[in-house]
Lab assay of single mutants.
Amino acid sequence: MSGIALSRLAQERKAWRKDHPFGFVAVPTKNPDGTMNLMNWECAIPGKKGTPWEGGLFKLRMLFKDDYPSSPPKCKFEPPLFHPNVYPSGTVCLSILEEDKDWRPAITIKQILLGIQELLNEPNIQDPAQAEAYTIYCQNRVEYEKRVRAQAKKFAPS
């Protein structure tokens, strides 16, 4: 494992614990031996107030490669969400998460999670990743928002 990646992720964890947006979660997972795995984080993004996503808490896994922060983490909703920019596998399609697009090593975990929260309610229809959600979003916004509200209710924190 890269010392650069681990040191950056340790800084990220410290900064997150000191200050993070209300309702968001970002925690490194534990290895079988109980030690912390900084390369694999369990996160959760709350649906934004005043949107059909409100009330939901959407679980996301963030996986970092050894060359982080040169390369972005892979962000994957578990379980996958109904959304035009979420692949059926759950992987998020967002330009700041793509090395050859808008990724920059200075982007923080907090910025990534806030960017994904923004994307939930403002899909990028130029870059669809899920045919069904994309089609319904474009053709029947009322039905799309109904499905999103049902999903938010399903993923409401207990």
Rank of each mutant, 00 (worst) to 15 (best):
R13M: 02
P46R: 07
Y134W: 07
S71A: 15
V148I: 15
V86P: 02
E12T: 01
A44H: 07
F58S: 02
P21C: 03
W53H: 01
L9A: 07
S7L: 10
S2G: 15
D100F: 12
I4A: 12
C43M: 09
E54C: 03
A152R: 01
D66K: 09
E118C: 10
K74T: 15
A131K: 10
E143V: 10
A133Q: 03
C75G: 11
M1C: 08
N31V: 06
V86C: 09
N140Q: 13
P157N: 10
Q11D: 12
A131P: 10
T35Y: 02
L9I: 06
E122T: 14
V92Q: 00
K74V: 15
D100Y: 14
E132N: 08
I136Q: 12
L113F: 06
K110P: 09
M1L: 09
W41S: 03
E145K: 08
D66C: 13
M39A: 07
S89M: 15
W53R: 03
G115V: 00
Y68I: 02
V148S: 03
E54G: 11
E132H: 09
A150R: 12
E54M: 12
I107G: 12
A129S: 05
Q151D: 03
P105W: 03
K74I: 15
I109L: 11
N37R: 13
R13A: 02
E132L: 09
S158Q: 12
E99N: 09
T135E: 11
F82I: 04
R149H: 10
G3T: 08
S70C: 13
P52E: 14
Y137K: 06
K101I: 08
L38T: 09
Y134F: 08
H83N: 01
P88G: 12
A44D: 07
I116H: 09
A44T: 09
M1H: 06
P80A: 14
V27E: 04
A26D: 03
F22K: 01
N124E: 02
E122R: 11
C43P: 07
L119D: 04
R141I: 11
A156E: 13
A5K: 06
I107E: 11
E42F: 10
D67E: 13
A106T: 13
P88Q: 15
K18V: 12
S2D: 10
I109T: 06
F155Y: 12
E145Q: 11
Y137E: 02
Q11W: 11
G55A: 10
L81N: 00
I4H: 10
V25M: 10
A106E: 04
P80N: 13
A10L: 10
S158I: 12
W53E: 04
K49G: 14
I109V: 12
S7P: 14
R147Y: 08
L38Q: 00
